[in-house]
Design a protein around this nucleic acid. Structure first.
Lengths: 208, 208
DNA sequence: CTCCTGATGTCAGAACGTGACATGACGTGC
DNA sequence: GCACGTCATGTCACGTTCTGACATCAGGAG
């Protein structure tokens, strides 16, 4: 018999999910989570750098999935399509978890701290995309833009997926988003510089 | 004579900037900042909800600028151009502050907490863009995508602006980014579905 | 059998953030 | 010109998050 129950990490995640549903995110303490997992607060922080982090363990796996999908894309495919296809490749992994994803997303939407964390995970994935693209020979500046555009498309598709009454899969929504982007960029290009000097309004010298 | 020195808020911001440069972000305490501003820690938290927030006061002003720029865009302009033009309209406000912006950006880049906050500010601006577009009659889904694409372009342009040795303005980089996006989306559209089934690799059922 | 390793616990403490209440200059109305 | 309310600030007390240092102790290696 092992000295400790196995799967401490998973136990903590499960406990956290339960408690967040029962008492809300703010209403539950790291100590509470640890206790329900049969562990100590200190131990929680050895597994997760953060109270928030306990909700975001999946993003590494998503990343791996994306990397391998990019690797298997044909050399000749246009880079934006590579990005879209790679992100769409995670689709099957999500299908099984629509219900969980919904709850989790509701939690995140309700807490600014959690939204912040989610955004930085997206950024991390964008950075990974950029690295992969660079290795395929895409120039830096282009790769950066592609990474950002790709995650924008993904987030957009994810939102639509999660509330899609027809339950079409994530890949479907990715391709729909791409099609729309294509439409938007196609109709542009003529009057691009129209408003350029419209710094009319109030607000002198914002700090930003 | 007033009972208290005026401009408490500005004093706190200035103190924070100084101290962050002197001792780094982690090395300075909210108490330190307040003390240098001649105030109390408690008072700091009345002006800023957060230690981080003291670095991000400019984003509201940026937002106002953008809103008024959108308002003055011609009705007939394609929506993506409206977005780009609106974001580019903040350009003059930034020109005066390239040096400060650099320092600030270095600080943010070095601290995940700060990057998180920056990202959520960008999201806020994206949401504002969406609202403005909706008021112009752009359908919801399209507006969402435009907001995301727009902020992606902005962030991209901002990065390039801040390190541009030729010191071209932010508007220039915005338009360059748009041009590149247009190029990327133009060359797409043929082999879009190539990788779609490439969920080959490892990693079964990521949580995310 | 002994020693080492690694997961966990215990303890103390700093920093963040908040609620409740106190203070006291200033302006307003009477 | 006096009483009163307001508002920015201070004071205090407290809960939570997160960290460093050190203790414990089962099980495996030698």
């Amino acid at each position: 018999m092992a000295r400790w129950e196995p799967n401490a990490r998973e136990r903590l995640q499960a406990a956290a999910f339960e408690l967040f549903e029962e008492r809300g995110y703010d209403g539950t303490t790291v100590g509470d989570i640890a206790a329900r997992g049969g562990l100590t607060e200190r131990t929680f922080f050895r597994y997760f750098t953060d109270k928030r982090e306990v909700l975001f363990s999946g993003s590494e796996e998503l990343e791996k999935l994306i990397v391998s999908a990019i690797a298997s894309a044909p050399e000749t495919m246009p880079p934006l399509d590579v990005v879209v296809a790679a992100l769409a490749a995670s689709s099957p992994a999500f299908e099984a978890r629509r219900a969980i994803a919904r709850k989790r997303q509701a939690l995140i939407a309700a807490h600014a701290e959690l939204r912040e964390r989610e955004l930085i995970k997206a950024l991390k994935i964008a950075a990974t995309l950029v690295t992969c693209l660079r290795e395929r020979g895409v120039p830096q500046a282009t790769a950066t833009l592609l990474g950002q555009t790709g995650t924008a498309l993904f987030q957009n598709a994810f939102e639509r997926w999660i509330e899609d009454p027809k339950k079409r899969d994530l890949a479907h929504h990715m391709h729909a988003a791409l099609a729309e982007l294509r439409r938007l960029t196609a109709e542009t290009g003529k009057a691009t510089r129209g408003v350029k000097d419209a710094r009319s309004g109030a607000a002198k010298s914002p700090r930003r």
